[in-house]
Nucleic acid binder design. Structure first.
Lengths: 340, 340
DNA sequence: TTGAAAGCGTTACCAA
DNA sequence: TTGGTAACGCTTTCAA
């Protein structure tokens, strides 16, 4: 029964001997319709395996019940769709969206090239947009915001912006991470990450603040700039040690993937973790506790984050204004930092 | 300019002083329309930031240009959306689909409860369905197949089925993995995974074949049944060693995540990998080479797989029949198996 | 409590 | 090479 005339609302109405309006309402459980009629029609629909044509509904109601989720990856680097943290956020968003009756249209920043609002909203592909990651440039995001399209961004909520940003307190997270290392008697702490990246720059600040709080001196030579990938971290750590020897005893990594790459480089040189070098990550991906040693890291609560992001988006659907909100972070102490 | 009357095709036509048919055709670059007219209208559309209402197109053409991708997870276990391999497949599918002008609607098996064909296809939410994972039961999948909806499944292509299945040669992969261990002089090889699971049962067969090929005896006590998660693998390995001691010198893991969990358990007991126990995984997730020791594993080529899956789906859109196809696997030798 | 009918914005057939 | 027009299948206002 693949392609022959699909049963429509009108067809069902005819079968039932009522009008399309009645069926439409009955299927939506509209109390306007007498309970018995509703029940009868719903049963009939079930019997005939009827399903509404969503395209027609959308056209009529001007509502898609779809949310576009855009993985905003930097084009050059290959953080790519393989970053487990980003994908976890997508997964959690999917769950929450489904619960609210919305579907998730997955997109990467490569498609719909420039004008996201136009591509997704004006063309009624989606009712709203969630962008994951502020990346290095927020141009495209601001364009969406300006268009007035419902928008929520996963990023750093503490920096001011004209749109709703949900994210962790990156500065605090990194501050706690660094402080934890200092308390474990690390004195030469390397920051590994990309300070130009929105969220990462906040983490950089937290790192600096922790240093100065403990009256340790900030030294720019202890900043190792690298992409948010294991591979790049691995290579950069290797290069650094090769060039300058092991001049650090602690690492603040801007993500667990970065930490993982760094750990690999260290292990290959038989540098002991945590006794020679302690390390703390960021994200708390599922694998963090499976590393050896288990990775001490700053946990981002993606479940709550997803819930909040969807809430903020739904608000905008109701013409209410949305806020930026900070999600709690927690330092998860495992085995990659030596006992203090 | 968020909500005031959006420019429609009719509006644009009026602006240009032509009919809607002409604009519609011009925007599709239909050669029926004179080149100059086409150019003029396209320029105008760009100028006014016009975008087609997709919902209307869909209703009219009965085509959505959307493919629903369903992560078919076993409800009970928490393989969940966090499995990096599954998510990689989703990512790769997204890329390929986009290239062909399709969008990816992400779904988990929890929604659209029973009747996927009805939910996605009849309701014109999507033109086709890609199911990732056959799981333990193929009921829902078969229901879709029976409905005649375009369908491709990521799973084990060697077992017969009435629909198109794309996947690796799981039996061969596991055979090679086991053989590799045997050549490294492992004599007591544990199989860790879930033999009831479609793909995994094929891997189980490969494991057995490799044993008998080397005239090693298959011993059911060397089958450790566990979920496809690190956590479960970790616990099961722990329990086993606790109960029976270290009675094995090799592990064939049904996924890298399982291997990772097993490795953690071994390391915690100071069992050396690879000299005491050698281990080989399956999937070759991005992190495999970052483990310590770097994980020897059977690589599944998700990029080709995604390409092939989309090809097979597109075929069905054109009313052609689709086949099951086997994707090549490769044993990637790293450091978790001792030198032979 | 139910029905008639207009209309959402396209596309494609047929006519010019 | 272009235009008029019906139709896709639903929702909702207004009337009964």
């Amino acid at each position: 029964m693949s392609n022959e005339n699909k049963l429509t609302l009108a067809g069902l109405a005819k079968l039932a001997g009522v009008s399309t309006s009645t069926v439409s309402r009955a299927l939506k459980d509209n109390p306007l319709i007498k309970k018995e009629t509703r029940d009868r029609l719903q049963a009939l629909a079930a019997e005939y395996n009827f399903s509404l044509n969503h395209a027609a509904s959308r056209l009529r109601t001007q509502k898609t019940n779809v949310v576009a989720v855009i993985l905003n990856l930097d084009d050059e680097t290959d953080q790519s769709i393989s970053d487990p943290f980003l994908l976890k956020v997508v997964g959690d968003l999917n769950q929450v969206l489904n619960k609210h009756g919305y579907e998730l249209l997955l997109s990467n920043s490569l498609m719909a090239n420039d004008d996201w609002a136009n591509y997704y909203i004006s063309s009624s592909r989606a009712d709203g947009i969630i962008v994951i990651g502020q990346g290095k440039s927020t141009q495209k995001i601001e364009k969406v915001a300006k268009s007035g399209a419902p928008l929520v961004v996963w990023g750093d909520p503490t920096t001011a912006s004209g749109y709703s940003v949900v994210g962790s307190n990156n500065e605090l997270g990194s501050f706690l991470a660094t402080k934890h290392l200092i308390e474990a008697n690390c004195r030469n702490i390397l920051f590994v990450g990309d300070p130009e990246h929105a969220e990462m720059s906040e983490r950089y600040k937290g790192y600096k603040r922790a240093l100065s709080d403990s009256s340790l001196e900030f030294n720019p030579n202890f900043t190792l700039s690298c992409d948010i990938t294991s591979k790049d971290a691995y290579e950069k750590i290797n290069d650094t040690i090769l060039a300058k020897g092991l001049f650090f005893d602690g690492i603040v990594a801007t993500s667990d993937m970065v930490a993982l790459g760094a750990m690999k480089a260290l292990k290959e040189r038989y540098i002991n973790i945590p006794s020679d070098v302690s390390i703390v990550g960021f994200d708390d991906i599922a694998m963090a506790e499976l590393f050896h040693p288990a990775l001490t890291t700053v946990q981002q609560d993606t479940k709550s984050a997803a819930t909040i992001m969807v809430e903020q988006l739904l608000k905008q659907f109701k013409q209410q204004s949305a806020d930026s909100v900070v999600v709690d972070i927690t330092l998860i102490e495992r085995k990659s930092v030596r006992e203090s």
